[in-house]
Nucleic acid binder design. Sequence first.
DNA 1: ATAGATGTTAGAGTATACTCGAAGTCAAGA
DNA 2: TCTTGACTTCGAGTATACTCTAACATCTAT
Lengths: 158, 158
Amino acid sequence: MEKYYTIGDVAARTGISAHTLRYYDKEGLLSFVKRSESGTRLFTKEDFEPLYTITVLKKSGMPIKKIREFMTLYLQGNKTIHDRYVMFNEQRQSLLEQIAELEDMLKIVDYKCWYFQEAEKRGDINYYKKLPEQEVDQRIIEFNKIVDDFREGVAKED
Amino acid sequence: MEKYYTIGDVAARTGISAHTLRYYDKEGLLSFVKRSESGTRLFTKEDFEPLYTITVLKKSGMPIKKIREFMTLYLQGNKTIHDRYVMFNEQRQSLLEQIAELEDMLKIVDYKCWYFQEAEKRGDINYYKKLPEQEVDQRIIEFNKIVDDFREGVAKED
DNA sequence: ATAGATGTTAGAGTATACTCGAAGTCAAGA
DNA sequence: TCTTGACTTCGAGTATACTCTAACATCTAT
């Protein structure tokens, strides 16, 4: 006799609501889950691995439709190992790009935090414009260069 | 005589479509943009800085409504410098958390890439289950521990 | 045996962020 | 002058991912 988990059990353990789990099932992400005679979903211990994989792909920014593609491969067993590797490898690239973009944004936001503090000290958001050029902090000059590039249409491929 | 940019100019330079720019305006993000007598939006050189700031906040994951709050502060000038600092500082925290989460996901995805390659070599997605325990790679043991925690409901606060 | 908790489905509703279409206005060149 | 292209608004449509409700079934514990 195997132990089964109901949708409520799974919801309580994983933090994914029962509503969301049913939605995922409807979207074809949970085809591996067995049903009782009366239709109740019966999750097994083993089902938590693909379920965990779904959460990882979700948090990596993969849309539901593409996760469904992955799960379709998963259901086909050993003959799709390579295809699944390819999908994860692409997702790896996507993650690297997302992280790089957020790190770029972090740099700008860090600068802005610094700049707002400087401006607050002086009570003037445009204080640097009244300074002789040599006294303007390099960070401000660099930021203004970025904004100039933005205005000139440099690197608008996103 | 000041040079003006139309919405089409701005779209071409920034890569943000004119449709999207009008949508942003409707949502209150572009209240700083002047209009001609006949209603045409007239962007100035200076408008590109707040516009750039909007793109940075967007790419940092800030929702439009919150960007509107920021722009409301922006329009009020020097008396809101501190509030704007606070918003950017919060966004900084949010970015650090997003990056940390994506890096966690990257670790899992890296592992999965490695594991799929190992499984592909052996033609069996569950090859390790047939191995004597001492021969199972440490990475597999650690991953299984993570899945076990997931099933046990450890760290479901997200 | 029956109440109450939990399960089921289908389908509607919400939130976010666009994205597009229609109908009309306006300015500049042939 | 007239056509053309770019601008305007309003409102509808799309995509994604939930989130919830209603009506009903089933399981469990007293």
